[in-house]
Structures are given as C-alpha cells and as structure tokens.
C-alpha cells in the first residue's frame, strides 16, 4: 500500500500516540502496588458480567487477569512505539479495548453508545489496517531479514 507523505506522517503519529498511552497505562499499573482489575471487573454490568465477577472473586484468576492486562498493555505500547510486530499489537489493543467497552458499555447508564474506549478502539483498527512500521519501525528490518531468509 502506497501512502502520500502526509498520510504516512499522520498514521505514524497516531501509532506513537496510541503506543504511548498504552505503555503509560501498563507501566503505571505495574508500579502501583494497589492496582487491581477487581474493581473494574466487579463494576461490569452487561453481558458476561457474571463471568467477570467470577474472575474478580478468584484470587488466582484475578492475578492472571491483572498480569495479562499489565503486560498486555506494556507490550502493545512498546510494539507500537518501536514499530515491532505493530499490526499484531494494534489488533491486540483493539481486542483489549473491545473487552473494556463490552464489559461496561456506556449505553447502560446513558443513551450515548460512544465513549473514549470505542474511539480508541477504532483508532487501533486504523493502525492495524494501515500499517506504517514497515516504513518507520523495527518491522522494516524484520521484513528484510525474513525476505532474505525466504529468498
């Protein structure tokens, strides 16, 4: 896919912004001794909320969910910033945001069905289907190495 320069620039900036946000969220949770996803899980109020409540009430499962969240966010953030496996990172980010949105959708408490999570979710989808890491990012080198091996 060929982009114009301005399109490439904007897409890269969007990728970096999303990566920066996820990395911050992940790192901040990692260093907050008291953070746990329990509160969020217990607040879930739509389909599958019973399942989320079960996760929150089982200490082992909760630790797993916490770790997946923290490291998921950190790895997605790193992937987008340095441009390594960016497409997988972007789809994973979109998936995580879909879970957050699905768990506590805004329309339960208000008429609006759009919230920040949904907007960010679509920003991730854009990054996933308009990749830029092969232009500016480690994926550029990864791609070369792979081609060399296959060639």
């Amino acid at each position: 896919m060929k982009y114009k320069n301005i399109q490439t620039t904007v897409l890269i900036i969007l990728r970096l912004i999303l990566g920066y946000h996820f990395l911050f969220e992940g790192i901040d949770k990692l260093f907050s001794v008291n953070w746990s996803s329990a509160g969020f899980l217990l607040q879930t109020n739509w389909l599958l909320s019973d399942f989320f409540h079960t996760l929150a009430n089982d200490p082992t499962l909760l630790r797993l969910v916490d770790a997946l969240n923290i490291w998921g966010q950190i790895l997605i953030g790193l992937g987008l910033i340095i441009g390594l496996f960016s497409t997988i990172a972007a789809w994973s980010g979109a998936f995580l945001l879909f879970i957050y949105y699905f768990a506590i959708p805004p329309f339960i408490e208000s008429f609006l069905f759009i919230d920040k999570n949904l907007i960010e979710l679509f920003a991730f989808i854009i990054i996933a289907i308009f990749p830029t890491s092969h232009i500016l990012g480690v994926d550029r080198i990864v791609k070369k190495i792979r081609s060399a091996k296959n060639g």
């Binding site: 920066y20 990012g137 480690v138 080198i141 070369k144 081609s147």
Partner: peptide, 23 residues
C-alpha cells in the same frame, strides 16, 4: 537484484530504529 533489495542498508537501520528514542 533481490539480494540487494533484502540487504539491510544504513537507511533501513536509521528508519527501523528511528522511533526507539521515544522510549
């Protein structure tokens, strides 16, 4: 020809790692 294309140039290194300083 493909060998040249797959060769990692200086330009690739610079562009490949150009966003790392953001960390």
């Amino acid at each position: 020809k493909p060998k040249d294309e797959n060769k990692i140039s200086r330009r690739d290194i610079i562009k490949g790692f150009s966003t790392v300083p953001i960390l």
